[in-house]
């Protein structure tokens, strides 16, 4: 097997005295879709934010394409990289937020273009073309001149996905992206994600949509209390939960998994 695209080694993170990540090890290979599941407070979102360097962590290492990101060792001491270096690394990792976080003063198209012109240094014509093609791909070619407040939650989230993937990141992180949506809007967002997964995008998905996880994920990782409790292909994890915690967690999804 080739080297993993992303490797997290023994990630520890605490807020003051409370340790929320207690040693996370995870490898994600090119083209894989990895789903993080678990109840709230299990550390899924925190871990995802550590990967995109939105949170600092006290111990451990994250490698992207074999290169450590976020920190470096200098004279035996662990040091946060400069703002510039961290930003350059973030540009290679897409992030889609639960609450969309579109820029309200920009149209859908401008939202997607901003990173292309200001980070990638693309000419605006080329950036516009790429933004349009991504908005097209997520089914919003008719909405590209709309401001976020003129769009439904599902449409906003699809713009946010286009904004993340237009940067051509090495992998995209999805943080409970359907949790803030009305139930009838969930499907359109999951559809876009499924389409991305099929096209070979590497993705880490924190989700409570178990059907989506079962159908789309290559690997499921169950987290509890800041640790990874079990991981494996969906069929295996869902059919043979090894711990009481996972059985209880899956049991909440109304016998979806025959348990």
């Amino acid at each position: 097997m080739p080297a993993p695209l992303l490797r997290a080694i023994d990630i520890h993170k605490s807020y003051d005295q409370t340790e929320v990540l207690k040693g996370i090890d995870l490898e994600v290979y090119q083209g894989q879709v990895v789903a993080l599941i678990g109840s709230s407070g299990s550390g899924k979102t925190t871990f995802l934010r550590c990967v995109n360097l939105l949170e600092e962590y006290q111990q451990g290492e994250i490698d992207l394409d074999g290169q450590p990101i976020g920190y470096r060792m200098a004279n035996g001491r662990r040091q946060r990289l400069s703002e510039r270096a961290v930003s350059a690394q973030r540009a290679r990792i897409g992030f889609v937020f639960q609450s969309f976080n579109l820029f309200p003063h920009m149209t859908a198209e401008q939202n997607v273009m901003l990173g292309l012109t200001k980070v990638r240094g693309m000419a605006s014509g080329e950036a516009r073309e790429r933004a349009r093609s991504w908005l097209d791909r997520v089914g919003l070619s008719q909405r590209r001149d709309h401001y976020p407040y003129q769009l439904s939650g599902g449409q906003q989230q699809r713009v946010a996905i286009a904004r993340a993937v237009a940067m051509e990141p090495r992998l995209v992180l999805f943080d409970e992206v359907t949790s803030a949506l009305d139930p009838e809007l969930v499907a359109e967002v999951l559809g876009v994600m499924q389409d991305l997964a099929k096209s070979g995008m590497t993705m880490i998905v924190v989700s409570h949509e178990m059907l989506f996880v079962r159908d789309v994920a290559d690997r499921v990782v169950f987290m509890d209390g800041g640790r990874i409790v079990q991981e494996g292909p969906p069929a295996q994890v869902f059919k043979n939960p090894e711990s009481e915690r996972l059985r209880a967690f899956l049991g909440r999804f109304h016998g979806l998994f025959g348990a």
Partner: peptide, 19 residues
């Protein structure tokens, strides 16, 4: 979330502030 969204697409401090 606005700052985080700008960070997530790789923007550094000054463009984040300005745009």
């Amino acid at each position: 979330g606005q700052t985080e969204a700008a960070k997530a697409i790789g923007m550094t401090f000054v463009p984040r502030l300005w745009y």
